[in-house]
């Protein structure tokens, strides 16, 4: 009888050990990588190619998976909030947002834990201690202003596109630009989309036909592309300066349609944002310190090696 009980004990120990070790092993294997949901404004993922590449690279390096969620329209605060909530409810381990409206109130979001990682890229939210990974938008505006100052005559009439100022990035760029530009210029006009104009090119064409300007300044991607398309369609001869990150803008910079482009390194933004979440240390606002680089390029400096690599991402 004694012997049988020993056998039973032995078998129990063995199976216990095997089960535990197989569990540990399989957990090691599928060390379930963290799921990060990235909610970007706009409905065109191609605009975010560089950002995506940076995020994918960081995901590979730090064992995380990134899911991209796009909006149905260019901008809709409520939709973005509901998407954030949806992703959190769908067991995302962290959320990265490019906020299309910086006044968005994130305190209404139900978080699964106090320390739930939320991070902004390219465009941030006003409140709370949510960090923003971006270039120094104010300085970008300033640099653009300096280019206009260097290249344009002081009597030039400058049109500034005021769309998307609800994003703090665009607002900061505007402030940086305006505070610098008034040093030389005083002839300004401000362009805005009106209600019902749901394609950006419409407002651009309207504004272009309405008044004659020498310089058009656009402070974000979709505005710049709209201005470019409008000037091509209407065959207008204006000097275009912009802050944007699109292939189209680079193309037209190359052929001289756009005079100067200020361009932030979105690959780094993507990489650093995902890395900060996955290695868990630095995504809190007080810890995020450095800004991402940006480049100021015109058609002569476009092909310089240091600019080439940023402006022309390898298409994987």
């Amino acid at each position: 009888m004694k012997r049988v009980s020993w056998i039973v004990v032995g078998v129990c120990f063995l199976s216990l050990f095997l089960i535990i070790s197989s569990q540990v092993y399989s957990e090691k294997q599928t060390k379930s990588s963290k799921q990060i949901s990235v909610i970007l404004y706009g409905n065109n993922i191609d605009r975010w190619q560089s950002l995506k590449q940076g995020m994918e690279q960081a995901g590979k390096d730090y064992e995380g998976e990134v899911n991209y969620v796009l909006m149905s329209l260019e901008h809709d605060k409520e939709e973005q909030l509901s998407l954030i909530q949806r992703e959190i409810d769908n067991h995302a381990d962290a959320v990265i947002i490019a906020a299309n409206d910086s006044s968005m109130d994130l305190s209404s979001i139900r978080l699964p834990s106090k320390k739930y990682p939320i991070l902004c890229v390219e465009s941030g939210v006003d409140n709370q201690d949510i960090a923003l990974v971006s270039a120094d938008n104010y300085k970008m505006g300033e640099s653009l202003a300096m280019e206009v100052i260097d290249h344009e005559n002081e009597i030039a009439k400058i049109a500034i596109v005021m769309n998307h100022q609800q994003r703090d990035s665009v607002k900061a760029r505007y402030e940086g630009f305006y505070n610098k530009i008034v040093e030389k210029f005083d002839n300004f006009t401000f362009w805005r989309s009106e209600k019902g104009e749901n394609r950006a090119i419409i407002f651009a064409q309207r504004e272009l036909t309405q008044e004659a300007v020498d310089v058009v300044v656009a402070l974000d991607n979709s505005s710049l592309e709209a201005v470019i398309d409008a000037t091509l369609n209407l065959n207008k001869n204006v000097k275009i300066y912009g802050i944007a990150n699109s292939d189209k803008a680079v193309y037209y910079l190359d052929n001289g349609k756009v005079k100067t482009l200020v361009y932030q390194d979105e690959f780094s933004i993507g990489y650093i944002s995902v890395k900060s979440i996955l290695d868990g240390t630095t995504y809190k606002k007080e810890k995020m310190s450095h800004y991402i680089k940006y480049h100021v390029v015109d058609d002569t400096t476009l092909y310089l090696p240091e600019n080439q690599h940023v402006l022309f991402p390898f298409v994987k």
């Binding site: 004990v9 129990c12 216990l16």
Partner: peptide, 10 residues
């Protein structure tokens, strides 16, 4: 008793 504990653990 020991056997019982082990079975429970298992």
């Amino acid at each position: 008793k020991i056997a019982g504990v082990i079975v429970v653990l298992l």
